[in-house]
Every structure is written in structure tokens, then in C-alpha cells.
């Protein structure tokens, strides 16, 4: 059964949040959704680029206060 795992990478800088996401993505099952929390501005643009290249699925990306909430679904 798919699940959503929250990865708190707030207050870390490029490429820390992306590498955190990739670490957990490797451990996740296909269909799982990961929600990355980041205060790093570049992460909001870098993660969709990485997701697109690798072939996963962007679910949503929104900034709430100072924190980006980026949801990605593992597609393969």
C-alpha cells in the first residue's frame, strides 16, 4: 500500500534537500509519495527538473510561509 513520507530538509542548502529526497526515493516503493520540506529556494526549481529527467511524477509544489512543500510520486 502506498504511503506519504515527509522528509524535513529545512535549513539545509543545495544540493542537500535534493540528495535527501533521492536517498529516500531509492528506499521507497513504486507508487509511494514523498513530501520534501525545504527552505532552499533553488530546491523548488531543481526538484521538478530532477523528477522530469528521472521519470518520476510531480504531485504538487507549494510554498507555505517560508517552507516549500514538494510532493513527488515514485513512478518506477
Amino acid at each position: 500500500m502506498s504511503e506519504t513520507k515527509v522528509i524535513d530538509a529545512c535549513n539545509t542548502y543545495c544540493p542537500g534537500p535534493l540528495m535527501e529526497l533521492i536517498t529516500y526515493m531509492k528506499q521507497a516503493e513504486v507508487g509511494d509519495t514523498l513530501e520534501l520540506l525545504s527552505t532552499d529556494q533553488g530546491t523548488a526549481s531543481d526538484v521538478p527538473e530532477w523528477v522530469n529527467k528521472i521519470g518520476h511524477e510531480m504531485v504538487s509544489s507549494e510554498k507555505i510561509g517560508k517552507i516549500w512543500h514538494i510532493k513527488v510520486r515514485k513512478a518506477k
Partner: peptide, 17 residues
Amino acid sequence: NNGVPSFRQLFQQASEL
């Protein structure tokens, strides 16, 4: 800045991931 990953950590991640 503790929020910046160290170069040693990043090279290890490059290898492992």
C-alpha cells in the same frame, strides 16, 4: 554553516546514490 553538506558527504553520496 551546518546546513551545507560537506564535500566528503557529497562525494560519498555521488558514489552510493
